[in-house]
Design a protein around this nucleic acid. Sequence first.
DNA 1: TGATAAAAGGATGCGGACATCTTTTATGGT
DNA 2: ACCATAAAAGATGTCCGCATCCTTTTATCA
Lengths: 143, 143
Amino acid sequence: MFFSKSFGYALRSILYVVMVNETQPRVQIQEVAERLQIPKHFLGKIMKMLAKEKIIDSAKGPFGGFFVNDGTVSTPLLRLMELTDGLEQFQECSLRLKKCNADKPCPMHNRIVQNRNELITMFSSTTIGDLIRSDDKKFINSI
Amino acid sequence: MFFSKSFGYALRSILYVVMVNETQPRVQIQEVAERLQIPKHFLGKIMKMLAKEKIIDSAKGPFGGFFVNDGTVSTPLLRLMELTDGLEQFQECSLRLKKCNADKPCPMHNRIVQNRNELITMFSSTTIGDLIRSDDKKFINSI
DNA sequence: TGATAAAAGGATGCGGACATCTTTTATGGT
DNA sequence: ACCATAAAAGATGTCCGCATCCTTTTATCA
Ligand code: FES
Ligand code: FES
């Protein structure tokens, strides 16, 4: 289940930039696209958006590229999800009925609300940096 | 979050048929579509599929329509999900990497696997009948 | 200052989920 | 036998996520 491709691309790209930046000041789209097997031009759009939203920074010109800024590692996953997928999926009724509320719950509501809240909590409290620290460097092979 | 519209339509329609069938032997697409505010022709496709898969039964001709069968109320939600959305979303990596496995977990894996398993358990163990019993008749206004 | 490199930006295309409409087939009542 | 009715079937259309490509802008360096 079930995040958009954009979310996955964005997350993996940021992780890659953060890790590579430890030894290398700039990372270019070309490199990210190749290493992470992401369509280059599509990735361009995503990283441009991430830069505009100040999740990462970018520099044009020769020796340009993308690089982390002060906020990068403390970005919560929820913020990323907001940018790529929007937050409606967390807030609206799972059956897309008018309004998810405890007074007039849809048939699924009581079965799903706890699970959903746990997910929201995880997305709110987990940051980019958390992912890197917890899994150590090992997973660079699997992003 | 984040079931397909088809899943929502299917679930609500079945619930409606089950409940109405207590006092009325057949239910027609027209009626379901109006009461549940679902596009009629699209609903036709879905209910045809549900009938073919024996989740409900159908009868053509005058006084025809859809009606429950012996298995309807004991259908697990997971079976419904399988028919409308497929089960891949439960099985594959949330970042759509090759294979979700504990040996080479993606960065999200450990953050999400428990939540996902809880969801699978709920979908496996909850049936159409469960939904009707637990919420009693009240929610007929909100399907 | 001009050549070059890389991101920013925009136009276009593709496929699948969602939706509508029309035709065919089966059924029960007359 | 015939007709009205309703599901089955299928053709067609729309929209959006995903993807590609091309042009423009900005920065660097010889
Ligand atoms: S009312 Fe549907 S999930 Fe809350
Ligand atoms: S490896 Fe990605 S969710 Fe399990």
